[in-house]
């Protein structure tokens, strides 16, 4: 768990951390759309500058972003190889035997790489600065208008928050079951196919049994405390938009407008 950085919350004290999750989610969506505008290198330069500024204000480190980016590198190399063989437009750069590399293959890959980097930067700005619970509250509020077309906004949010609450418990449980089965001679690393299958079964079945038990207990506890899905309830945590949240939204909207102008009206 320790080395996964993508999507992890980093508890720091920064203006970005304090912002309303709804503003952050909306701003992220706006900027994501902006990234997909064919605005050229100037456009990407502007988005990169804006994202970097946000990262600095959020007091996140660039190595953290780099770590989140790392798992994508393999994909990019793969993409470059495919592009090199398929894209035969632009200027020929060099030739080895019967193979010629064209400039568009390089540019196309770079384009995608830059977009990916920008997306990682922007989403990390959101996930690293927003508590999981606040994130679900934000999603719930943003989905509310869609309740009219029967999107169960509250249920979705409750589902996500309970999943988040129990993930650490389930990880502990998994570790415990692995150890218990290892004590019974299960070897998860070696063995013949049949033995491997049994080894995996010996983990999955108990994990399911305990997850169901947990779910039943939890359902009882929630019901006993008056929870009934679909019924009216009040909410303890109330989100409130402040000046800085509007500034963020305005900034994100301006960025998108700029990209649209760069892409289509210049």
């Amino acid at each position: 768990m320790g080395n996964i950085t993508l999507g992890r919350y980093i508890p720091l004290d920064s203006p970005i951390h304090k912002m309303d999750p709804r503003a952050k989610i909306l701003a992220m969506l706006l900027v994501l759309v902006a990234i997909f505008m064919p605005a050229g290198w100037i456009g990407y330069g502007i988005i990169f500058a804006a994202a970097s500024l946000t990262i600095i204000i959020a007091r996140l480190s660039f190595t953290f972003i780099w770590k989140a980016m790392k798992p994508m590198l393999f994909m990019l190399v793969f993409l470059f190889v495919i592009n090199a063989f398929l894209l035969k437009t632009g200027d020929p750069l060099f030739t080895v035997g019967s193979f010629t590399l064209y400039s568009d293959a390089v540019f196309q890959t770079l384009y995608i790489a830059v977009r990916l980097l920008l997306m990682v930067m922007i989403t990390t700005c959101l996930t690293a600065t927003t508590k999981p619970l606040d994130m679900t509250l934000g999603i719930e509020d943003l989905l509310k208008p869609f309740q009219k077309i029967h999107v169960p906004a509250h249920e979705i949010a409750m589902l996500i928050s309970i999943a988040l609450r129990f993930i650490p418990d389930l990880i502990d449980e998994t570790e415990r079951i692995i150890k218990a089965q290892e004590s019974r001679g299960v070897d998860l690393k070696e063995g013949k196919i049949m033995e491997r299958i049994m080894a995996i079964l010996s983990l999955i079945v108990p994990l399911f049994v305990s997850a169901f038990q947990r779910a039943e207990d939890l359902a009882n506890a929630m019901e006993a405390r008056g929870y009934a899905p679909g019924e009216q309830r009040t909410r303890y945590k109330v989100l409130k938009m402040e000046g800085r949240d509007y500034i963020l939204l305005f900034g994100a909207a301006a960025l998108l407008a700029g990209m649209v102008w760069l892409a289509y009206f210049r």
């Binding site: 008056g226 929870y227 009040t234 303890y236």
Partner: peptide
């Protein structure tokens, strides 16, 4: 949040 859960269900004003 856990103590609040039951209050939310019983529609206690925030």
């Amino acid at each position: 949040d856990d103590i609040a859960f039951g209050l939310e269900n019983h529609c206690v004003p925030q």
